[in-house]
Design a protein around this nucleic acid. Sequence first.
DNA 1: AGTAAGTATCTTGTAATGCAAGATACCATG
DNA 2: CATGGTATCTTGCATTACAAGATACTTACT
Lengths: 108, 108
Amino acid sequence: MNIQFKKGVLEICVLSVLAHKDCYGYELVNDISKRIDIAEGTIYPLLRRLKDEGFVTTYLQESTEGPPRKYYQLTDSGRKEEHELKDEWMRFTTSVNALLVGKNDAAE
Amino acid sequence: MNIQFKKGVLEICVLSVLAHKDCYGYELVNDISKRIDIAEGTIYPLLRRLKDEGFVTTYLQESTEGPPRKYYQLTDSGRKEEHELKDEWMRFTTSVNALLVGKNDAAE
DNA sequence: AGTAAGTATCTTGTAATGCAAGATACCATG
DNA sequence: CATGGTATCTTGCATTACAAGATACTTACT
């Protein structure tokens, strides 16, 4: 899969999944990987950025299956960001698709 | 507009426009800019890459409106690449959109 | 005890690409 | 001769995804 396509998009995917339920990093990797390849080396720095920017908060929860899990939860700001990014993504893909099908009138 | 979204996508846009007609760089910037912002500092290095990879060839043509124009023309390899990248882009956006609307059954 | 495998988090360094800003140069108009 | 539109190109920076590895907890097998 083209790595470049994912730039910026994985962030929306993470926010979108978190909009439905709190998740820990490892869980996000598994959930998102069903549709789009994503590596652990990608998700953890991304989650740190989201936290630094105030889009998520975290809480620890013990697990019987391994070390404690760090759950990520959307803030109000995160919910807003998720909405705005999704809108922007839709507008962007619409523009790109219009270009790709050649509806570029213009050229007389 | 989110710069990250464009990563890898502008390449398809350029190939797609060139699939319809030969263009020079400045013309590509103007054509594509109608739908998606693209800077000259982006297009020229991109066109150089496409040429280095054998996806396009070039020829010069004089202009009465300024310096000579360097036209870019798709090769067979370029046409193939355009087709493959477009397919990959369609598959990618389909996957992302499925994730964004939350059809992630899985979570029981 | 020791080892392996699954679960879970995190860091470091590298690669790729878009952009701002600038340099260069041709042509027309004032 | 200065300005602005046309046209090409380069340098250095910012961002993001990833491979590869380190760490550590739990279970299960030997």
